[in-house]
Amino acid sequence: MQRPDWAPETIDVERPSVARMYDYYLGGSHNFAADRAAAQAMMAAVPEAPLMAQANRAFLRRAVQFLTGAGVRQFLDIGSGIPTVGNVHEIAQRHAPDSRVVYVDVDPVAVAHSREILAGNDGATVVQEDFRHPDRILAHPDVRAALDLTRPVAVLIVAVLHFVPDDDRPAELLRALRDALPAGSYLVLSQASDDGRSDAERAEAQRVYQRTDSPLSVRSRAQLTTFFDGFELVEPGVVWVPQWRPETPESAENAERAVFLGGVGRLGG
């Protein structure tokens, strides 16, 4: 949440950050002791956590490859976190060097880190904002400078929505974004789901994330599907992320163990 101009903000690395925990799941070292401790607690409760992060990251890669293949050259990655291996601009610009990417994250450390990594890349930039303020994101001068909102944009909100409780009205936030996009734009969503999980696993995961700055809001496939309201889902719809356009049939096996559901929607018209 954007603080009022006068309110203090401290950078507390003693408090686990979901962005850095995610980096740890992916095998990165862009994290601090508190992040690792929280991630390890999560892995004790849900041993597949690293697998989930990897599967989700692989989904992001396949989705961006699909989008560049579909001709999209503008990407708005909201909740981008620590821009660790295989981030959007690397994938997109490898396929289409003229791709422009704007990363948005609320975590100031993630933003500072992104800024360092993106220095010298004219096609990619980072903005510190919260998904909960789509109006501010869309009005941000750096977003306006990088993206032409009269041409198709792919909005990526990957592994973020489970940190957005229903009280924050995610469907309305997504609608605000959708209303700013021209036809031919895309929406990529993935989020943790507790479909098929035991009660004990749910409770433990909640307990771990309660200590971070972002408690969990898991959702069902039906709920995630409603978030694509106004978009046409591309094949195969909302599925466990390994099942979304897998590269090999084997990689889609035991897909529900990935915990993440994901999908890609296209704005028609």
């Binding site: 903000e9 690395v13 850095r20 070292s29 862009h30 601090f32 993630a110 500072a112 360092e116």
Partner: peptide, 25 residues
């Protein structure tokens, strides 16, 4: 080691940014 250095630098930068923003505000 590189990544640790990089994330620490980012934390310092973020903290400096936040403090500067706070002082400015």
């Amino acid at each position: 080691l590189d990544e640790q250095e990089s994330i620490r630098r980012a934390a310092l930068t973020a903290r400096a940014d936040a403090e500067r923003a706070l002082r400015a505000s």
